[in-house]
Every structure is written in structure tokens, then in C-alpha cells.
């Protein structure tokens, strides 16, 4: 285990350059037009206001000083204060993040479950009707426009059938559970608030299925491709020739087929976050995606920069976790 810990430390350190590149990119991006404040507030604003905002954002400093302040800030957790409410951006982010995390976790689980199931069905029926159907499912879900699918769910299951709420994280008449992790379903269980738990779960159905189904197509495709490949390998024939039951043979195959899927999970995560922005907006889900969209509407450049940086760091951390998982699961990896 010592070696594994070592590997993890090294891998985490390697994430720092990636974060640095992304964060620098955001910095450059925000200054592409020369003056983000003017671009966001609009030309109509009086010059004194613009000047004041520029000063507050530190934009009146020389560019290298701005950069140093910014980078130091990023690595000390100081993402500046929002222009509008003068609150630390990091605090806003941490307030909204649990909602996004809860949504992405549920969606992720749904997408992997559906993807593994459909991909397996396709692979073991290779070339038959089920296979073509599942391939089509993969292409269709890949192309689904999230807001469309989400709104249709709201309309059919929310408005017409009345079985799921139209949006939000919790009904108005339910008070949120005490803050522990910020994930309502977990906090409510931890504090025994079953009413809040079931209500939160009901609110999760719409958005997490929307996002989960849209993402499942990629897993369908890769699980199918890997499994078809693995099923034709010698060790599967050998396992069958030893008289193992089909279910056991498929278990062997699936285990091997899922390892490359872990790598996909890292990449899929970026897509998951992209989807989360749209899903949150569609379902009035008060997470980081909604926050980002709101802050852009408010032209709060500092908050936008901070949120994008936070996303960048989050994605990098996820890729470290994915690599760690890979190393733990696959005995062939030497660290």
C-alpha cells in the first residue's frame, strides 16, 4: 500500500501543471477584450462606475501583478469578492456546489447503470435486433438536447401526470435538513428527516434522469465495444471450456470490459458538468451551473472567473481520482 500512496501523491502533484494551464487560460480569456468590465457592464455605464469596478477587481494594476495576485489567490482559496454583493466568491461557490454535486452523483450512477446494461445487452446479442436497437439508443441519447428532454419530462410527468415536481430541490413546505454535507438526501438521512429525504429524492428524479439518460449513450457505446472485443478473447473461450456458467463468464468479461470505462468516466465528467449547467437551468436547480449563468447575467466578472476556475480545479481533481481508481482496480498497473 505504501507504493500506492506514493503513486497517488505523485499523480496529484502532476495535476498542478494542468490546473495552472487552465487557470492561466481563464485569466487570458477574461482579458481578451482588453476590458472585461466594459464588455460585461456595457458601454452605457458611466466612466466613474467602470473605473471603480476596475479598481475593485484589481484591473488597474499592471498585468503581471494582476496575474501574480490571481494565481496566489487561486492557490490560497481566495477567488476575490463578487462585484455586486461584495461577498467572497469562494463562499458563494461552496454554497452552490453541494447541489451540483448531488445532481451529478445521481446522474452519474444512473448513466453508468443504464449504459452498462444496454451495452451488455448489445454485446451479447451482437449483430441481432437488440444490438442495432442499442446502437441506435447510443446515437440518439448522444444527440438529445438536454433542455428539450428535461422540459418534456416536466410537462409529461410533472404537469400532466403530476408524479414529479416541476423544479427545485425541495418543496416549499419542507424545511431543508441541517447542513452537514450539503447533499439533501444524505443530510436528511443522517438527521433522520425522512420527509425531507423522500421529498429531495422526488425532486432529483427529473433532473438526474434527464442528465443520466443523455450521458448513458456514451457508456452504452464503449461498454458494447469493449465487451464485444473481450468476448472474442481466448480467456473467455477458456472460461467457457472450463464449464463456467454463462452468468459467471459474462462477469469475467464485464470486469475486463469496464476497466477502460473508468478512463471514460474522467472525460465524461466534463460532459457531465456541461450537462449540469443546462439541467440546472432547466429544472431551477440552485447549483453552481445556475449560479454561473446568473452571474453572467449580472455581469459579475469576478464571480464568473472564480466559478470557471473552480470548475477547472474540480475537473482536474476528478481526473486524479479516476487514475487512482484505475490503479487500485487493475492489478497490471505498476506504480
Amino acid at each position: 500500500m505504501g507504493k500506492l500512496a506514493n503513486y497517488l501523491v505523485v499523480r496529484s502533484l502532476l495535476a498542478i501543471p494542468t490546473i495552472l494551464v487552465l487557470v492561466t487560460l481563464v485569466f487570458i480569456l477574461m482579458r481578451l477584450t482588453g476590458d472585461p468590465i466594459a464588455a460585461m457592464v456595457g458601454m452605457k455605464a458611466p466612466p466613474e462606475v467602470i473605473a471603480e469596478l476596475r479598481h475593485k477587481a484589481g484591473l488597474d494594476l499592471p498585468i503581471h501583478e494582476q496575474y501574480i495576485r490571481y494565481i496566489t489567490g487561486v492557490f490560497t482559496g481566495d477567488l476575490g469578492k463578487t462585484l455586486l454583493y461584495d461577498r467572497p466568491v469562494i463562499k458563494d461557490i461552496l454554497d452552490h456546489f453541494p447541489a451540483t454535486l448531488e445532481l451529478t452523483i445521481y446522474s452519474f450512477i444512473i448513466s453508468v447503470l443504464i449504459g452498462v446494461f444496454t451495452g451488455t445487452v448489445a454485446a451479447i446479442n451482437q449483430g441481432k435486433f437488440e444490438d442495432v436497437l442499442m446502437r441506435f439508443y447510443g446515437i440518439f441519447t448522444y444527440a438529445i438536447f438536454i433542455p428539450w428532454f428535461g422540459l418534456l419530462l416536466q410537462m409529461v410527468f410533472g404537469n400532466w401526470l403530476g408524479i414529479i415536481p416541476i423544479g427545485g430541490r425541495l418543496s416549499a413546505y419542507i424545511s431543508p435538513p441541517p447542513f452537514i454535507t450539503g447533499l439533501y438526501t444524505i443530510d436528511s438521512l443522517l438527521t433522520g428527516r425522512l420527509d425531507a429525504f423522500f421529498d429531495a429524492l422526488r425532486h432529483l428524479i427529473g433532473p438526474s434522469f434527464t442528465l443520466g439518460i443523455v450521458l448513458s449513450g456514451s457508456y452504452t457505446r464503449i461498454v458494447r465495444a469493449n465487451l464485444v472485443d473481450i468476448l472474442s478473447q481466448d480467456f473467455i473461450t477458456a472460461a467457457r471450456a472450463r464449464g463456467l456458467r454463462d452468468s459467471l463468464v459474462i462477469k469475467h468479461a464485464l470486469k475486463n470490459a469496464l476497466i477502460p470505462v473508468i478512463t471514460l468516466m474522467g472525460l465524461e465528467f466534463a460532459i457531465l458538468l456541461t450537462g449540469a449547467v443546462l439541467t440546472e437551468t432547466t429544472f431551477s436547480w440552485n447549483g453552481l451551473g445556475s449560479y454561473l449563468v446568473d452571474m453572467i447575467r449580472n455581469s459579475d466578472y469576478i464571480a464568473v472567473q472564480g466559478t470557471v476556475v473552480f470548475f477547472a480545479i474540480f475537473v482536474s481533481i476528478i481526473s486524479v481520482i479516476v487514475d487512482a481508481l484505475y490503479a487500485i482496480i487493475d492489478p497490471r498497473i505498476r506504480y
Binding site: T18, L22, V26, L29, M30, L32, T33, P36, A39, M40, G266, L267, A270, I271, L273, T274, V277, L278, L292, V293, I296, Y301, V304, V308, F311, A312, V315, S316, S319
Partner: peptide, 14 residues
Amino acid sequence: VFPSLILAIAITAV
């Protein structure tokens, strides 16, 4: 690896 829509939003916002 960066979420593409978020990047696109940031760019258009700026």
C-alpha cells in the same frame, strides 16, 4: 478535459 459549454459561456460572456 474542460467542460466545453462552460468554456463557451465564459468566452461569449467576455
